[in-house]
Design a protein around this nucleic acid. Structure first.
Lengths: 257, 257
DNA sequence: GCCCCAAACAACGA
DNA sequence: CTCGTTGTTTGGGG
């Protein structure tokens, strides 16, 4: 559920609260998705201190004093919790004991994925895309739908089903547009919308929920928002499956085919 | 272009004319699609005599005295020619010298495919299907369109885009029907139509073109026929893409969904 | 019209 | 709403 803006705020707040702490215990659920064994994870993290906590794509990266990096993907329902009594928490996929407190990743769907020191991704983060890269991807997959392209994490990391609708509404492009048919100047609008929508959302979330390390703020979304029936400019919001995802859009968005 | 009925007649006529002949030379185009090297093909066939020529699916199988079997798939435009002067023929994909004459496979699109001794197919020929097999395939792929299923050569061999339309019109089933939704008793109609349409067509072709080893007779087709605008029972013939093929059908055919 | 391949898409489970 | 896998469908080229 959390997407790039939420995760950015979570990472900042986690870092503010946990940087410098030393890991005293590592416990992970036998059902957790993990790229190594629980024992290897424990050995890598135990007695290391937290150097930084950053978002990368839809993951949160914990970097430790030995340069070990743990990537946490919350999937649909994962949550970060800072607990004084971690045993109280249910569905603990990962528990890092940090002295008086513990960082818990809890997920009743048991889908959160943990990766220790994975090969670094070569896919750019959505906040780092440039026009040359995006145009190159578009020419390589010119007959794909635009929404499908933008939420493909092998093309661009961090954008999910909610914010893609916001971006496309902002850019005034239909999610069903065929990427090869989009005029070149409109790609610039798209790039600007990606950056603006995401950075604005980060600001909104910080304002409304300054200390958040989980949960979600979504009420400010302009079109991907079941509470609204019209866009800010008054157009009725339609809902339809696009790229097999429920999609909110309006007639303001031009359909390039 | 040729489908099962045409190929059946071609095979019978080729066998009548060529059985017992000995292969004196083998020449195949460097552009031919071949599962082995031209040299291996020559070594396998040279100085062998032809024991039988039979249709199998959309291929014609030449069996030689050493039990080598050559499968010829004519694709869209391939033709069998019995020539006294094979060098005259253009686009010769394969030339088997047989003494005074030669068997030539000619194809200006260069798509005909030749296979020597391939592993035997486990897919039944359309003239050999039984209800148990067809029902099993239907339950395995229950949400496929019926036309797509019937022309899939990994399900059933020999039916192509023209005869499938004839079969479905005869059986009174829409080509767009979802196979899992077709009532069981209607499957029996389908099986009968497959057999009747194909064997009738073989008879028609033999009557009109008794010595054919290439070419096509299509004028007797009832619905897959650009010359006709109504089915024999008077319904207007519609044309539409189904399973990405141009499809002829009428409202007489019930659409199971 | 035929087949093959690759890309796009859908469905399901974890 | 997420990702991965698998199986199916579609489109282009030979």
């Amino acid at each position: 559920m959390p997407e790039l803006p939420d995760l950015t705020v979570f990472a900042e707040n986690l870092e503010a609260r946990l940087r410098g702490r030393t890991v005293r215990s590592v416990e992970c659920s036998p059902t957790a998705k993990l790229n190594i064994s629980p024992a290897e994870l424990r050995d890598a993290l135990c007695n290391r201190s937290i150097e930084s906590i950053r978002r990368a794509g839809k993951e949160v990266a914990f970097v430790f004093s030995n340069h070990a990096t743990l990537l946490v993907h919350l999937m649909l329902k994962g949550k970060f919790i800072i607990a004084t009594d971690p045993q109280e928490e249910k569905y603990r996929m990962l528990t890092l004991g940090l002295g008086a407190q513990a960082l818990v990743v809890s997920d009743y769907q048991e889908q959160t994925a943990l990766k220790l020191n994975p090969p670094p991704s070569s896919v750019p983060d959505a906040l780092d895309v440039d026009g040359a890269y995006l145009r190159r991807q578009i020419s390589k997959r010119s007959k794909t739908g635009l929404k499908a392209l933008l939420i493909d994490q092998e093309i661009l990391r961090g954008i999910g089903n909610a914010y893609v609708d916001e971006i496309l509404w902002q850019a005034k492009i239909s999610p069903k547009s065929i990427v090869g048919k989009i005029p070149d100047r409109v790609i610039d609008d798209l790039l600007i919308a990606i950056s603006n929508v995401l950075t604005d959302a980060i600001e909104q979330i910080k304002r409304r929920s300054p200390d958040a390390i989980s949960g979600e703020v979504r009420d400010f979304l302009r079109v991907h928002n079941p509470k609204r029936s019209n866009s800010p400019t008054g157009f009725p919001i339609k809902t339809e499956k696009v790229a097999s995802r429920t999609t909110y859009f309006t007639e303001e968005q031009v359909f390039y085919v």
